[in-house]
Amino acid sequence: MTTGYMPDTNVFSDVLDGRVGIERLRTHRLYATHIQRDEIGKTRDEARREALLAIFNELMADMTPTSSAVAGVSVANAACAGESVVPTEAAVWDVSKWGYAKWGNGGSEFDRLRRALDERNKGTRNNVQDVLIAQTALRNGMSLLTRDADLMSAAKEFGVPCEDATVVFGITDAG
């Protein structure tokens, strides 16, 4: 049983483009890493970037980190309980952010998952980010939401629970 859902960055685009209903997503426990927010922040079209960030912030409304920790409330390796942004399970130079990643190489699991994804999509430039998201979902008992067939296939090979957000939370008459 999963503890919640980890949406791939494309899910936020799916909401904006009408393929996934935001109302249905709001009824589920969603988690993200800094990776999704960073990828949205690199969107070239300013209006689209702002709209995507608004959706991200709305869905991750309780993600605001606090500057203090409370005994019995704070979560190890994360800011505070209730926070929807969780640290990635590995750190990658020039991708991971201090305080938002568990430092280390993530073990051979990260490397094997990345190789599997690289083989499927010929090494797309954001594979490192996708693997960080998938590995974080796996190690935290979350189901990965994505419509990326290559990522879904590679992640499932390594035991990551995956679901196509457009099927589970989609709108059949849009998109």
Rank of each mutant, 00 (worst) to 15 (best):
S84F: 01
S84G: 07
V85Q: 14
V85F: 10
V85C: 15
V85I: 15
P87E: 04
E89M: 11
A90F: 03
A90I: 01
V95P: 01
S96Y: 03
S96P: 03
K97E: 13
K97S: 13
K97P: 03
W98N: 02
W98H: 03
W98K: 04
G99Q: 03
G99Y: 04
G99M: 05
Y100S: 12
K102G: 00
K102V: 14
W103G: 00
W103V: 08
G104Y: 10
G106A: 07
S108F: 13
S108Q: 14
S108R: 14
D111Q: 10
D111S: 11
D111A: 15
R112L: 15
R112K: 13
R112T: 04
R112P: 00
R114W: 10
R114E: 10
R114S: 05
R115W: 11
A116I: 07
D118Q: 06
D118I: 07
R120F: 04
R120Q: 08
N121V: 03
N121D: 12
G123M: 11
N126I: 11
V128W: 05
V128D: 08
Q129I: 00
Q129E: 10
D130K: 09
D130M: 07
V131D: 00
V131G: 00
I133N: 00
A134E: 03
A134I: 05
A134T: 02
Q135Y: 02
T136N: 00
L138P: 04
R139I: 08
R139N: 13
M142V: 09
S143I: 13
L144M: 12
L144P: 13
L145S: 01
T146G: 03
D150E: 12
D150M: 11
L151N: 06
L151F: 12
S153C: 05
S153Q: 07
S153N: 03
A155M: 01
A155S: 06
K156C: 05
K156Y: 04
E157N: 14
F158G: 03
G159H: 15
G159N: 13
G159R: 14
V160A: 05
P161Y: 02
P161D: 06
P161A: 07
D164L: 02
D164M: 02
A165D: 13
A165N: 09
T166E: 15
T166P: 05
T166N: 09
V168Y: 06
V168R: 13
F169S: 06
G170Q: 03
I171A: 06
T172D: 11
T172G: 05
T172R: 11
D173M: 12
D173C: 11
D173Y: 09
A174T: 10
